[in-house]
Design a protein around this nucleic acid. Structure first.
Lengths: 326, 326
DNA sequence: TTGTAAGCGTTATCAG
DNA sequence: CTGATAACGCTTACAA
């Protein structure tokens, strides 16, 4: 920066201004400085900037995994939104473990991020302490069924589960099963189960059979879930899978086995993956727009950072997509 | 840090050592300092560390998009590998544009990353200049068909395309078509086409029809590609799609239309997505292990940073997965 | 509008 | 093994 200043015949401070608040500098001076910057290929040192200005221009995003198209889409939208403001995103993978999440939060805190975007409302007490003490804004996503630390941009898994239950019942299902990530690892999936169970209970039917898959899970686990359901409750006439990947695998497996969907077994997924509408029968599912969640959570965080009076919870709506499989 | 030092009755420097090189401090002193750190909830300031040590502990990863399971898997593996060493990953989304990539590289350079992991071997001249001048190690992925800036961890798209061509020909295909991202946007897909065209030429057949899709593309585009091929070359008997998502969409559409795969139309994808083996007929495709690429590129970068004599190019092998669709 | 001085919180370096 | 001192490259705050 000193070199640039010398070359432009100004002080370092003026160079700093040209970079940070160009409008504070005469057009002529500005031009001279910008030329010098270009000629010297000067690239500001962000660490020095952070240290002096106490602003990292970094947002930390912690998700359970990147190998789910929904989380990937969410993160992509977050990155795109923040990139426009010159903010970088650092990603933490918790692998569906709140303990790892805590560890990651602690490490990322060293970068003094402008804020955290977390997945879900459930974290270790220590993680919440760390967050609170540091005073960084926190946006929680994917869940609005409990009180957020600070604010949230998500949807109600319970409501979504209940809607699925209602649809399945309306379709005539009597013995509904649920296949999803273990409740202890995935509280969002658990919320969907709770909603489903509520709808089933209200209809006066016995509680749904539940298969808990150990996370991280693969698409293949959809077949394992199907098998587990059929082994445990052979009369099951409808299965709600907590993710489309699982539902799709199961649906295709049913086709292969000659098990008629939805006549013998109705199937409902969650997430509305790209292929959901293309398989036969097409997959009934729930659309949640992870990209909107990614963008909204970023905007909410920015509003918090700017001190705007941001809403505590942005409730995104899920949408039941009724297709052929249920 | 001063507070911690005071509380532990040592100098700030000793606190720094306990954090950075604990082995240089007596066990007793170390313990005292660690207690003080815990009691005061001290969290080091990474920006100050970066500035003083001239080491950002950040690696920049630039990919075309995160909404492709292959790139997501790659990035996940990279994050997991680097996390172990306390290195954070910042992600840039180029949206398949080398211009945006250049812009992103310039911005990320401000963070003085330990290195860059880029996608492909094709970048703007200015981007390459920026990289060279900054002197950061660069690992390029997804392509080994040209000379890397620094080093590469990828596979040969040309070889993969050629293998697909050979398989399709062996299967009896006479009129092969290719559907993939526009060559100007996706040089990797272009490589696959080149390989395919080579195999076809060697067999003495007319060059394959080629449909270029504008990126970013959706799964649905697989159907558009299929339609475009059939419109342009109705006698086509085999299509090579540059991504499984496209191939899967097309395959399912063929099923719906009663177009028999592979009898009337053989289909080959690329990437071996989760569902590839589950559809009927199962999808013939090419496996490339993006997770291995993500891990390997990270390791290669670390080796470069450590000054180890790392190989210039790590050639990962693709694997033809012959299934039912071709 | 521009410049000067004083940090920002840490690590490198050298001395003890 | 531990401590003192001087950076690291920039921005804030104030002065001119």
């Amino acid at each position: 920066m000193a070199d640039v200043a010398a070359r432009a015949g100004v002080s370092a401070q003026t160079v700093s201004r040209v970079i940070g608040r160009p409008e504070m500098v005469t057009e002529e001076t500005r031009k001279r400085v910008q030329d010098a910057i270009r000629e010297l290929n000067y690239i500001p040192n962000e660490a020095a900037r952070n240290l002096a200005s106490n602003n990292s221009r970094v947002v930390a995003v912690v998700i359970p995994t990147l190998s789910s198209s929904a989380f990937a889409a969410q993160v992509k939208a977050t990155i795109d939104t923040l990139e426009l403001r010159g903010i970088s995103v650092v990603i933490g993978n918790s692998e569906y473990s709140v303990l790892r999440e805590e560890q990651i939060i602690q490490t990322l805190l060293e970068r003094r991020p402008m804020g955290f975007i977390l997945t879900g409302l459930h974290h270790t007490p220590r993680a919440m302490d760390l967050l609170r003490q540091s005073g960084v804004p926190v946006v929680e996503t994917w869940d609005t069924d409990a009180r957020p630390i600070d604010c949230a941009a998500g949807f109600s898994n319970i409501a979504a589960g209940r809607d699925v239950g209602a649809l399945l019942l309306k379709r005539g299902a009597q013995r509904i099963a649920f296949v999803g990530g273990a409740a202890s690892q995935d509280s969002r999936a658990n919320g969907r189960f709770i909603g489903l169970a509520k709808a089933v209970a209200e209809a006066g039917l016995p509680p749904p059979v539940r298969i808990e898959l150990v996370l991280p899970m693969s698409t293949q686990d959809g077949i394992h879930g199907l098998d587990a359901v059929l082994a445990q409750a052979p009369l099951t006439d409808a299965i709600f899978f907590s993710a489309d990947s699982l539902a799709l695998a199961a649906l295709l497996e049913c086709n292969r086995r000659g098990l008629r969907v939805p006549e013998q077994l109705a199937i409902c997924g969650f997430g509305d993956f790209d292929l959901a509408g293309l398989v036969t029968p097409s997959l009934t599912t729930v659309r949640i727009q992870p990209d909107v969640m990614g963008r909204t959570s970023a905007e909410l965080l920015l509003a918090r950072v700017d001190g705007d009076e941001a809403p505590t919870t942005v409730a995104l709506q899920h949408q039941l997509i009724r297709r052929g499989s249920a």
